[in-house]
Design a protein around this nucleic acid. Structure first.
Ligand code: SF4
Ligand code: SF4
Lengths: 161, 161
DNA sequence: TTAATTACGGATGAATAATATCCGTAATTA
DNA sequence: TAATTACGGATATTATTCATCCGTAATTAA
């Protein structure tokens, strides 16, 4: 029961794209080098973000990625679901159907009680993630990370984008 | 990002053990047959429940499993964590440490901002599961499942325990 | 006492999913 | 025209889940 490591990568990438000047982009190559992760594999995550309309990828020299929306319109849930998918972590194999005492007609009942509670917890997880925007992450990072590290990182990235 | 299928099995097993007469037990073999799942593998889940003090396994003929506590003292979270473990679904590889602009001293900072939000969502999931007891599941099942199916299943199980 | 039954736990194999790389295509820019 | 970049398909590698097998110890009934 582990989220893919691409989730962490995608969140970090969105985080740094947030600090970009209007219209500027960051190529996958630079994002990969900055985070110390394999470029080809990170690209898959970035393409997922692109398909979901969270980032925009532009081709050619000086191309790369930038956020598609304002940071306060992008939630953690958007990013997580883009790379991890929208299926619940609990998948029901309908083993109640194997009950030897079950009459045939019972087949078309509503979803099982157990599954409903599990999906309810899943929804609580999603609700929590939906409550955190990139903008809020930015404010919190400004508190948590030394200003010098932030500005140096910003320079480093802009110089290569 | 999927829970193991043993989670579903364990929840179902606890559910049927709840209806047992005082002191009676159900062997893994019977639980496996009732749910249509492999006995050897289901045993692993039952042993996990046993280790966590949720059920009690007794040896010998007429042995088997029974709940170790009252149904209103057992939550979904207890059962899920017993078979799935207590680690968060989000595991942080500390990729921020690869930032080329990072001074050495920064190493021993507090957990990253991103990870904190992810763990917060994980905690929301656990809180939701912690709020559902076996007793409540039993009441809900009584509403959802036809009385005839419940009583037939009960007979079937007791006859073999 | 003996034989059957049961939980328990270690070892091992099979199937599936996550991780990672490779490469060809199309778009864009200098 | 040549270099750069996103994009997507194919493939290989590794980790995890799923499942089985088997020996041990405890308990019970005959
Ligand atoms: S009873 Fe619920 S959890 Fe179990 S198999 Fe059916 S739907 Fe799934
Ligand atoms: S910043 Fe957070 S999510 Fe990113 S590597 Fe560090 S701890 Fe993990």
């Amino acid at each position: 029961m582990n989220l893919k490591n691409q989730v962490e990568w995608a969140l970090h990438c969105c985080s740094v794209m947030m600090g970009l000047p209007q219209g500027a982009t960051l190529p996958a190559k630079v994002l990969a080098e900055f985070h110390g992760v394999p470029k080809e594999y990170l690209s898959k995550a970035l393409q997922s973000l692109s398909q979901q309309g969270i980032v925009i990828g532009t081709l050619g020299p000086n191309g790369g990625y930038r956020l598609a929306k304002s940071p306060d319109e992008i939630t953690f849930l958007d990013i997580v679901e883009a790379v991890e998918g929208k299926r619940s972590g609990f998948s029901c194999a309908e083993i109640r159907g194997n009950n030897p005492c079950l009459p045939k007609k019972h087949k078309a009942g509503k979803p099982c009680t157990i599954a409903r509670y599990m999906w309810q917890a899943d929804e609580a997880w999603r609700t929590s993630l939906r409550g955190v925007t990139l903008a809020e992450l930015g404010r919190q990072l400004a508190e948590d990370v030394p200003a010098e590290v932030l500005s140096k990182s910003h320079e480093w990235l802009v110089a290569r984008g």
